[in-house]
Design a binder for these strands. Sequence first.
DNA 1: AATTTGAGCAACCGCAACAGT
DNA 2: AACTGTTGCGGTTGCTCAAAT
Length: 268
Amino acid sequence: MLDWGVDQVQQRNHDLYQQQQQQQGCRKGPWTPEEDKLLSEYVTSNGEGRWSSVAKCAGLNRSGKSCRLRWVNYLRPGLKRGQITPQEEGIILELHSLWGNKWSTIARYLPGRTDNEIKNYWRTHYKKKEKSFSKQEKVKRSRKQLDLKPQSQQQPQQQNQSSQFVSEDHKKLDNEQNTFSYQTSVFFTDQFHMPQVVAATSSDHSMMDEGNLWGSLWSLDDHDPHHFGGCSEQRTASNVSEKFNGCGIDAPFCGSWDYSYNGFNTRL
DNA sequence: AATTTGAGCAACCGCAACAGT
DNA sequence: AACTGTTGCGGTTGCTCAAAT
C-alpha cells in the first residue's frame, strides 16, 4: 500500500495536469505579436465570448481562458497604458477601503484600467505597508488592552484598519512628493449604493492632520450642511449612515478630504 | 564588471457561479 | 435535479529589467 504524503500527491496531480496540457497541445507563456494579431482580428470581427471556440476558430493553440485574459488585459480597445495617476490612486485607495480586494468591481470605476493592473498596483505599492501597519496596530491594541480606561472615557472604535492606513499613505505621498496632492470623492447616488467617484486635484494640503481627518470622517453629522449636496437627492450624513448599516456595509467612505480647505467634503 | 535584490507586470491556476442540456 | 462546459474572479507565480551592492 502506497503511503503518499501531501507533497507527493500534489506533485503527482501537477504532473498529470502538465501531461494533460501537453496532450492537448495548449501553448502557454508570453503571447507573440502573431498570436495577438490573430486574436484581436478574430474578436474584432466576431465579438467577445465563447472563448473556447475563439481559440480554435482563430487558429490559436491556446486555451479559451488564456485568450480571454489576453484580450481583457491587453488587447481590448480603450485600455489605458502607463502609470496610475494620483487621481486613480486615490480612487483605488478609497474603493479598496470600501470593498477590500474586489478588484474587478474597483476596475469598473477606473475606465481603461483592468482588474489585473489594479491588483498588481496594489500589491506592489501597498501590500507591504498594509502588513507593517497591521503589526503596528497589533502593538497599539495590546498596549490599549493593558491601559484599562473606564468605558465612558474611551473613544468609539469606528475606524477600520484599511481606512487608517489609507490616510497614512496619503501622508506619505505628501512627504515624499510634495509636488502634487489630490482630492478624491466617493459619493453614493443610487438605490443600490453604488459609489460614483470623482477625483480632482488641489494644491495646498500642508495642514493635513490625520486626527482631524478621521475625526471628520467618522462624525459627519457635525459638518456644515452645505457640504451635503451634489446629487438629485439631498441627504444628511446620518441617514446615509443608516442606509449603509441597514444593508450590512461596514463603515464606508461617504466623502473625502479636501486639501484645499483642509476639511472633509461629503457629496451625498 | 558581476552579482544580488526588488519592483513591475503578464500570465497561469484553482475555484465558484452561472448557463445550457 | 444532476451533470457539463464556460466565464469571471482573486491569488499566485515567474520573468524582465533596473538599481544597488
